[in-house]
Design a protein around this nucleic acid. Sequence first.
DNA 1: GAGTGGTCTAGACCACGCA
DNA 2: GCGTGGTCTAGACCACTCT
Lengths: 239, 239
Amino acid sequence: MDAAPHYRPLYRQVYDFLVKQIADSVWRPNDTLPSEQALAEQLRVSQGTVRKALDTLVAEKLIERRQGKGTFVAEHTQERALFRFFRLSEPGGERTVPTSSDESVKRRPAKAAELRKLHLDAGEQVVEIVRTRSVSGRPVIYERSVLALRHFPDIDRRQPLPNTLYAMFQQQYGVNIVSAEEELRADLTRAEDARRLPLAVGAPLLHIERVAIALDGSRVEWRVSRCDTSHLVYAVTLS
Amino acid sequence: MDAAPHYRPLYRQVYDFLVKQIADSVWRPNDTLPSEQALAEQLRVSQGTVRKALDTLVAEKLIERRQGKGTFVAEHTQERALFRFFRLSEPGGERTVPTSSDESVKRRPAKAAELRKLHLDAGEQVVEIVRTRSVSGRPVIYERSVLALRHFPDIDRRQPLPNTLYAMFQQQYGVNIVSAEEELRADLTRAEDARRLPLAVGAPLLHIERVAIALDGSRVEWRVSRCDTSHLVYAVTLS
DNA sequence: GAGTGGTCTAGACCACGCA
DNA sequence: GCGTGGTCTAGACCACTCT
């Protein structure tokens, strides 16, 4: 624990150390972390200071603690990623699990908008994934994901892709998605949408753009989803 | 600090006590709370236990702490309520401050849907507030709020109403809005919308329903907003 | 200088999971 | 019974604000 420029509290330095271990895949999903006592001795700080850092990581959902068992690196399971970042549900409140299908995966140079959204360097390559998602057999979402290839080498040769990408990002590439910035607006169904979804041109469509952000702050995915909200709603709790 | 059924940790009991003081307006917005030491002595617990409860309240934005000055009950200022619960902004990211106008305020018995959304008893009265919001002179939101009258006696005689209601809820009625559940879907402009907003019937419109939840868990407002998202987006960060 | 919150420590005891 | 995390305490020192 050496001093940082302009002073960082000890618990912050411990936090940074722990994050780095996870980011570098020293500790992988579902691994057990050393106990508080062990970390305290290793880092030459008190147990209370380690605890404060661990509490922060729990709040950020990067680790989970179970009394009597230990501290574990949180895993992005299918369900978890779904409930955390997939906000569409039935109007009452029941969460729905969509299936994905009809995908196309292409590698190509990034376009101008993608360079900007993902903070890429000119000429960098991306992988574009197009798919349709269905809820109880009915296609309701037409979605295009663009990934920076630098974070996911050869992902375009890994087909078939799972229903939720983020678990694979974490397990195969060590990329932890920790937050997502979404922008929503209402739009009309266009001919391109109508080819994928059973909607008439001119029907209302919820347009969602997402930038997914990894543990190290990099913007790794830009996703545009066009959703039929005649039977689903986008549900979010502000607090 | 007496025992609770099935055991509540001490810091939880301290938390409950502090929340009650705020909910009962014993401590009002901008008031200074007693110091950690004073609270610890009053409640017969250690300073660390008080601190843990205070940290939770800070995370929930119910209080603010300033080193060297003290601990204060957080105030719902116009700006703060706006940035916290008003998610519409310009596509780039700049937050926009809308003005409200053209309001009508009516007291009437609750309808069936309102009873359900606000968990009211049959026959209870509500106040309906209808208004239009504009951004840089352009009407972009047509909004209908329904409030349970029991939480806001005579609010319908308090006109004119402020741009953001939640600061008034807190200051005039001691009702702290702590979270809001929103449901969004895409819709088309109807004749009723077109009378209020400069849109053609059939143009896309973002339909937002919100239930605002107070500190004690009661559902105090049901709001339906119909938004022109041709120049604005609904922006939210999932984490 | 006095009073506040912010950081850090050391140690005790409890609740839980497992062998 | 041992090791884990969860709770609680007591006290030290630092950083900031105001007078």
